[in-house]
Structure formats: structure tokens, C-alpha cells
Design a protein around this nucleic acid. Structure first.
Lengths: 135, 135
DNA sequence: GTAGGAAGTTAGGCATGCCTAACACAAAGG
DNA sequence: CCTTTGTGTTAGGCATGCCTAACTTCCTAC
């Protein structure tokens, strides 16, 4: 329960698994490798670590599933990603493709406090007027 | 001249050296190690790499200096740091200490485009009106 | 059933980046 | 001088995270 030291890399695996299983797909090693653009062997290795930490369940040669704990963590990571992406695209007007890449990296470097502040900022400037004029 | 692959870690060394030499200090291995909170041996090693890449000049047992190229790169890195810090503190109102830590990490993950957009945003919302109306 | 190919794993290797321990050098004081 | 103290380097080790190559397992189609 302690704030498990889940590296940026492992967070990426969790996020990928969440996205895959959200799409109905059962999250196989090959799919994860494809999404993350890594060798399958690397995925197998990472899954071993994630399983040790109780974040993933994975029988040999079987599909991969998030545990409850892993799911919660993955959702957190994905939220970060989306908040940051939203900010980059909607506020800064960064090109969506670039923003997507940036979000992938930034999501691992932003403190919780900054994330909160970012959410607050978006609530102020987004909901208040999703089309707020700038002319 | 090509976009040298200078890792985040090496960028930190450059930034530290720039900050130290800006303070009059001659940037010694010990100082760099202290600033970055690393072992001196690690600094020596990194300096070797930086020297190979022509970013730093460093005679055995002597002080460390940035080359022209290294200086330019270090300034770029430092600028990124300051822009991000400024944004976090002035716009998001993140606690300065937390913001400082975040900036150290974020400066390595943000694309050039996002940096530009961030600068534009700050120019709009900072200089134009440090008290911009939000009512 | 059995031969494919696809999926998954294992083994071994490599780069980065950090560490500690031990050694070499330097500069200053007695 | 020569010893002491701090600075710098070298050597060796370790963790992470990736890779390729070779092997095993699975599944499907014949």
C-alpha cells in the first residue's frame, strides 16, 4: 500500500494494458509490445516485475489483466495523461500529435500538486467557457 | 551541429556548471556533485562524456568550463527551466519549492513547440497584464 | 495427428547512470 | 621538507530497461 515505486516505464505498461483492455482486446503480450513499440521479450520481462508488485496478473502464455490495485494505478496515470493533453491542446494550442507525445513524457514528471493546480486551472478556463473568445 | 543526443542527465550537468560559473565560482567537480547531489566519481565520469562531445573543457584535476557550444546548450536548458518555473508559479500558483522540483524534470520532457507556446502564453498573460481581468 | 506459423519465453548482451572503495594528486601548515 | 586534508580519478559493481537470437508452446488447417 505504500507509495510503490513504479517507474515511468512500468507506468507506461500499465497505461497500455488499460487502454487495450478498454478496447475489448484482452491485452496480449504482442499487443502491448506493438502499442509501446518494444520487443515482446521486453514486455514479458516487465510483466514479471508488475506481477511481483501485484499490479498485473498473467499466467504463462495467457492474456494479461490488471489487478484491482493495478487498475487503480493505471487509471491515475491515464488521468494525468488526459489532463496534460487537454491543457496542451486546449489552452496552449499545441499541435495534437506533438501534444500527445509530450503528454506521454510529462505525465511521469509532474507532481501531484501541480496536477491538482492544472485541473483547477482547466476548470476555471474551460468549463466557464469552452468557447471563450480571444478576439 | 546536428541535434546532439544529450541525455536529460547530461543536460543537468551542463545546467549546474552554468549556474556555478555564473556565480563566480569556477565550477569544480566537488561543487557540481554537491549541487546535483551525486558522488564525485559520477561527475568525473559525466564530464568525460561531455568533453567527448565538445561541450565542456576539463583538464585533469582542473576546473570545469563550458565550451561555446556547451554554453549555448546550457543556456537553452536553463531558459526552459525558467519558463516552466515561471508558468508553474505565476500561472498555476504551485508552491515555489514544488515548482522548482517539477521544473527540473519537466525541462527535459517538453517539446520545442510546447515551449514556444508556453512562452507565448506567458507573454499574453503576464506582461500584458500581471493583473488581467478574470471577472 | 501433425506441420505451419504466431505467440510467448528464456538467455545473454549492452548502454546509461549511478554507487563505493581505494588510490593519486595538490595545496597549505607546521 | 613532509604530513595532512581535501579534491579528483580509477576500478569495479549494480539496477534499469532495452535488445536479439533461439527456443517452447499454442493453435489452426490440412
Amino acid at each position: 500500500m505504500s507509495p510503490l515505486p513504479v517507474s515511468a516505464s512500468l507506468q507506461d505498461y500499465l497505461e497500455a494494458i488499460l487502454n487495450l483492455s478498454a478496447n475489448g482486446e484482452p491485452a496480449r503480450v504482442t499487443d502491448i509490445a506493438a502499442v509501446l513499440n518494444l520487443a515482446k521479450a521486453s514486455v514479458t520481462q516487465a510483466l514479471g516485475v508488475l506481477q511481483e508488485q501485484g499490479l498485473v496478473s498473467h499466467d504463462r502464455y495467457g492474456p494479461v489483466a490488471l489487478t484491482d490495485q493495478g487498475y487503480r494505478l493505471a487509471v491515475t496515470v491515464k488521468n494525468r495523461h488526459e489532463v496534460i493533453l487537454n491543457f496542451l491542446v486546449e489552452v496552449l494550442r499545441v499541435d495534437p500529435l506533438v501534444a500527445e507525445q509530450d503528454a506521454c513524457l510529462l505525465e511521469h514528471s509532474v507532481s501531484s500538486q501541480t496536477m491538482e493546480k492544472l485541473v483547477q486551472f482547466l476548470e476555471r478556463n474551460n468549463s466557464a467557457g469552452s468557447r471563450m473568445r480571444e478576439e
